[in-house]
């Protein structure tokens, strides 16, 4: 069953002189329930725009977005957006516990939200850090807080915008392993935007490849690597290497797609 459906989604921005600038052109894709899909494309091709429209954070110019069969015009309760810049999405005046609780305290009240927050912090390996402030933690730990906050809302789907691009390479592997584990345990549906080919292959069931601006669907790639995967070992599989070569060639435009 398709959980998220984008149907001929187009995005244009008004242009003072001349016709509107089209950044996305008729992109259609469907993410099945429980599927992990990566969106891969060159920098600046509008991947984040796509994700924001899927999250109901940005209106589409044309086409439709559906989540669980409902047309999306505002952020739906089923899907939570995880931002690239954790320093901007975490609230520096709240400690880690209350940052996580922020996702739910408007629904459950502050006391219950704190209990949930503590449990979520345990799940992302941050037990005992509830009293710290975000700016006292490393970048990787801050992104863990953001992930714990997203999970606290108990979404069916995570929309992740290059969530690991702002941390160092080792921390990135660590966080990829974490997200693989959480995805499997919670049977989440994930749409993850990245420009990191290795990350896309390691994590995703399918990879939607976008063209340069205006972004169109270039290709839908079935990864086909066995699960459970390992953020490190999976990268040594011949299938991984072949797919990596193919995707890099396409993104670098070494041969025409």
């Amino acid at each position: 069953m398709d959980f998220l459906e984008l149907d001929a989604v187009t995005k244009e921005y008004p242009n003072r002189s001349g016709p509107p600038a089209r950044v996305m052109d008729q992109v259609s894709l469907s993410v099945r329930q429980g599927e992990f899909m990566a969106v891969l494309g060159p920098s600046g091709c509008g991947k984040s725009t796509l994700l924001q429209m899927a999250a109901g954070l940005l209106p589409v110019s044309d086409g439709t977005v559906r989540i669980a069969g409902r047309r999306i015009i505002a952020p739906p309760p089923e899907a939570v957006y995880v931002f690239q810049q954790y320093t901007r999405s975490l609230l520096p005046w709240r400690n880690v516990r209350d940052n996580v609780g922020f996702a739910i305290e408007h629904r459950l009240g502050r006391r219950r939200a704190r209990e949930v927050a503590e449990a979520q912090l345990d799940q992302v390996g941050l037990e005992g850090f509830g009293d710290h402030f975000p700016w006292q933690l490393s970048g990787g730990m801050q992104q863990r807080v953001a992930i714990a906050r997203a999970l606290a809302a108990e979404p069916a789907m995570l929309l992740m915008d290059e969530p690991f691009s702002a941390v160092d390479a080792l921390t990135r592997l660590d966080l990829q392993a974490l997200i693989l584990e959480i995805w499997a345990r919670r049977r989440l549906t994930v749409l993850l935007v990245t420009h990191d080919v290795d990350e896309a292959i390691t994590l995703a069931d399918r990879i939607a490849v976008l063209t340069r601006r205006p972004a169109r669907m270039a290709e839908m790639v079935e990864v086909g690597l066995p699960r459970p995967r390992d953020a490190v070992a999976t990268r040594e599989a011949p299938q991984f290497l072949a797919l990596r070569r193919r995707l890099l060639d396409r993104l670098l435009l070494r041969h025409d797609g």
Binding site: Q52, A55, L57, A74, P75, P77, A79, V80, Y81, F83, Q85, R88, S89, L91, W93, F102, A103, I104, H106, R107, A153
Partner: peptide, 26 residues
Amino acid sequence: EAETLAMGRTFGIGPLRRALRITLPA
């Protein structure tokens, strides 16, 4: 930051609460 406010929206937090709990403290 626009992201900070979008964070509030993705969790379904209404405009008044966003103003009081995000904009004002920031």
